[in-house]
Amino acid sequence: MTAASAAIAATMRRFDPALSDGDMQAIAKGIDANNDAAKALHPQKKRLKNGDAPVVRFAVSGNEP
């Protein structure tokens, strides 16, 4: 468990003050695990170029005024 993930986990008590210390540890560990997994997505790791755009889908509905 890193200090950063523990600090982020602590902020979740604002949503549920009843979160136990065990819950906080589980949240922090989950955050660390996700951060580790996301390293595989880092631009340097997989050589994303500046122009590699994300998947986005947006359409103007074209409603009449």
């Binding site: 996700n34 951060n35 996301a38 997505l41 880092h42 631009p43 997989k46 994303l48 590699d52 755009a53 994300p54 998947v55 986005v56």
Partner: peptide, 12 residues
């Protein structure tokens, strides 16, 4: 940033 990079990886 992780979410956006995941969607960028998704394009590839």
């Amino acid at each position: 940033v992780d979410y956006v990079d995941a969607q960028r990886q998704r394009t590839l």
